[in-house]
Design a protein around this nucleic acid. Structure first.
Lengths: 136, 136
DNA sequence: CCGGATCCACTTTGATACTG
DNA sequence: CAGTATCAAAGTGGATCCGG
């Protein structure tokens, strides 16, 4: 990539109205989205569902370290935001299948860009943390 | 937009080893980064510093709704991760200037992609939330 | 099989007051 | 001006038990 002279397109660089609209800082869509997917499990779930639909316990086994509670909460939150679709099959033992909605699938794209950045610069971040740990 | 058949490049779509490496879910660089910038103020600070260097109280006035404590903590965290540079001028009234490091500046790019997505789909998310509120 | 409910611990954020 | 200290409140994640 062309690299360091980041042009920063998009509205994120648009001149702010002067002081940040303190009453709307909670409503900043960027922050809002980041806080949604920035939790402990959402990304993992989104990535997994991006590969194919999963059933609840399948997802549970797929992640292992997550508790039922958090898996349920995460899925509900993603469903509420229209990122995940939940379909219940009225079989004898209840069966529920989760999949990504088109909206959720579209989120995978910018998420990939951030993923690339994270992977590419994980070393830099780790180094910076080390440096500040063993600071003078 | 070409939209729905998201190709999903990058390693985020690379086949996972089968069950998610449960022991490393904490170390997933994507989640790690997202949780860093997914807090309440980091993005705001990064975006502001992306425009030009700021001094502490200048930043404080720029955001308003943030407390001194959180501004300090946010800046320290960003500095620790090598995203923000802190320069102290030993003037009579102490003066500290914060600016984005090249690393921090490079983060602005994928952040912009996510920002675009958030802005573009904020309506969809809002609608989804509404729908689930007044659900059958 | 899916997931709600309760209780508890840890983390994050915030209000206020004080300092070099 | 640029922080730090302290306390309190809220949010988040987890263990376990219970129900449809």
């Amino acid at each position: 990539m062309s690299g360091t002279h980041t042009d920063v397109p998009s509205m994120i660089s648009a001149p702010l109205p002067s002081p940040v609209p303190a009453d709307e800082h909670e409503r900043c869509p960027v922050t809002d989205v980041l806080r949604r997917v920035g939790d402990k499990w959402s990304i993992l779930v989104i990535v997994l569902l991006g590969r194919r639909p999963y059933r609840f316990n399948e997802l549970h086994r797929g992640i292992e370290a997550i508790s039922q509670r958090m898996l349920t909460r995460t899925l509900r939150a993603l469903e509420t935001d229209g990122l995940v679709h939940r379909e219940v099959f009225p079989t004898v033992p209840p069966s529920v299948e989760y999949s990504l909605t088109p909206l959720g699938r579209s989120l995978l794209v910018p998420l990939s860009a951030l993923a690339d950045w994270a992977v590419e610069h994980r070393g830099d971040i780790a180094a910076a943390r080390q440096a500040s740990t063993s600071d003078t």
